[in-house]
Design a protein around this nucleic acid. Structure first.
Length: 465
RNA sequence: UCCCCGGUAGCUCAGCUGGUAGAGCGGGUGACUGUUAAUCACUAGGUCGGCGGUUCAAGCCCGUCCCGGGGAGCCA
């Protein structure tokens, strides 16, 4: 007898009348005093479970009556057309083996009822057994696969950039230190400062906040590369959009400018969304019903419509003449606030919006200076409901401009020699962006908190599980 | 880091101007049923986040700390 994923049985890939075996977990049970029980069994292969009918001729029927949400079972039986409403096929059990009981049904946290997301976060090891989190992971998986599929199909190479880094490229203050020094007995130098030359790497080291600078090196040789891996920020942020550990996608393309990066971001996002619509409709229907009534429509619109592109300067005009009362001022040289970004994408354009060419003083050193001398070739991709979902730029490929901007930002040229070398030896215009994977998953599923689209969220004060 | 809201049964919550606790769901038992968020009856289950204070009396008022959530900033 062959073991089947429940997905195959429900899809009609196995004929009725065949003997089948399934392995999974009980979701609900309903006992009939007519001498049989209905068991709904899930194995995670798809959104739905399959109904199993077990009757009192089974030798362990007394045990079956005690089955409870969460018990693990192996069931053998015949796949038949269902005699009841609500499902096309079901299994008439010839054997029900209970593999694992639920120790105390009274305290098993995942009850067949609605829970708050806050409570489920506290039982993150058991929340995958809920509809919401199993659907989330299937969608997340589709999206992760789609990321690699998209880049692979378009000639990109996947580059594994380091997790541990010694260059604090985005400025200090938000980095996790990596050290093997004995914190109770720190080595000091003459001046009484901690002597990191005695540390593992012989210098200060941190968890990466971005693989971009490393990715640029390979882009300047293999033309099109991307990274997709964990990223760490020690920011003390308490919002629905921030994690201390998250996954970031960073493509980097040689011989490309800012418009190429914007187009890439749009094509990439549409591809990933289409994959979800093509492969996870059951999961999306669930999110559409119970999480966000506009989820599916939002994704379909995204695929059909082209993204709006607007210059920072023009965005300021739109905001100034909007008639909206904003809490924060709209002025040249100030970054757009969350309220401004959301107005643009949610109320004004009502679709994904790429804001381009920001004032140079509010953007990092590596972004390319525009000909106007006051803006850099930066872009933020904004989507309704989330705000910023990607941030990118054309990189400064001209050595003198780059050194100039590094000096302005107070960066030590020697620390970045390897980076500036790219401009000394065969430099090319190149561009790329960074996309927070959890923000993408949040956008797609409608789950508004990124803590609920990653299996085990890390946030300030919380690293359980 | 700043501002706001919350912490009462396994879960979701109610609890009035202070008088030492309630419901629904879930669990258990029973009735009924090709059921499917089943229905009905009965039942068990609580150091009211911690500590301190006010009071004859605190879930409720005051102080403080801890935890959770939302918003801002920072960003992806």
């Amino acid at each position: 007898m062959q073991t089947h994923a429940i997905k195959k049985l429900l899809n009609g890939q196995v004929d009725t009348g065949e003997s089948v075996e399934i392995k999974g977990w009980i979701r609900t049970t309903r006992d009939s005093k007519g001498g049989f029980s209905f068991l709904v069994v899930h194995d995670g292969s798809c959104f739905d479970g399959i109904q199993v009918v077990a009757n009192n001729e089974l030798p362990n029927y007394a045990d079956i009556l005690k089955l409870f949400t969460g018990c693990s079972v192996i069931i053998q039986g015949e796949l038949v057309e269902s005699g009841g409403k609500g499902q096309s096929v079901e299994i008439h059990a010839q054997s029900v083996e209970v593999v694992g009981w639920v120790e105390n049904p009274d305290t098993y946290p995942v009850q067949p009822k609605r829970h708050t997301m806050e409570f489920l976060r506290e039982v993150a090891h058991l929340r995958p057994r809920t509809n919401t989190f199993s659907a989330m992971l299937r969608v997340r998986n589709t999206m992760a696969q789609a990321v690699h599929q998209y880049f692979s199909q378009n000639g990109y190479f996947w580059l594994h950039t380091p997790i541990i880094t010694a260059s604090d490229c985005e400025g200090a203050g938000d980095l996790f230190r990596v050290s093997t020094l004995d914190m109770m007995n720190l080595p000091k130098d003459d001046k009484g400062n901690i002597d990191y030359s005695q540390d593992f790497f012989g210098k200060e080291a941190y968890l990466t906040v971005s693989g971009q600078l490393n990715a640029e090196t390979y882009a300047c040789a293999l033309s099109k590369v991307y990274t997709f891996g964990p990223t760490f920020r020690a920011e003390n942020s308490h919002t629905q959009r921030h994690l201390a550990e998250f996954w970031m996608i960073e493509p980097e393309v040689a011989f490309a400018d800012l418009n190429d990066a914007a187009q890439l971001g749009e094509d990439f996002l549409k591809f990933v969304v289409k994959q979800v619509l093509a492969n996870n409709m059951d999961d999306m229907k669930f999110f559409n019903s119970f999480v966000d009534k506009t989820a599916i429509q939002r994704l379909e619109t995204l695929c059909d419509d082209s993204f709006e592109r607007v210059n920072y300067a023009d965005a300021l005009d739109i905001l100034k003449h909007s008639g909206e009362q904003f809490e924060y001022p709209v002025e040249w040289g100030l970054d757009l606030q969350t309220e401004h970004e959301r107005f643009l994408t949610e109320k004004h354009f009502k679709k994904p919006t790429v804001v381009m060419n920001y004032p140079e003083e509010i953007k990092p050193f590596y972004m390319r200076m525009n000909d106007d001398g006051k803006t850099v070739a930066a872009m933020d991709v904004l989507v309704p409901g989330i705000g910023e979902i990607m941030g990118g730029a054309q990189r400064e490929e001209r050595l003198d401009y780059l050194l100039n901007r590094m000096e302005q930002h107070g960066l030590d040229e020697n620390e970045y020699k390897w980076y500036t070398d790219l401009r000394r030896y065969g430099t090319v215009p190149h561009a790329g962006f960074g996309a927070g994977f959890e923000r993408l998953v949040s956008y797609v599923t409608g789950l508004s908190n990124v803590r609920d689209v990653i299996p085990f969220p890390r946030t300030p004060g919380t690293a359980k599980f």
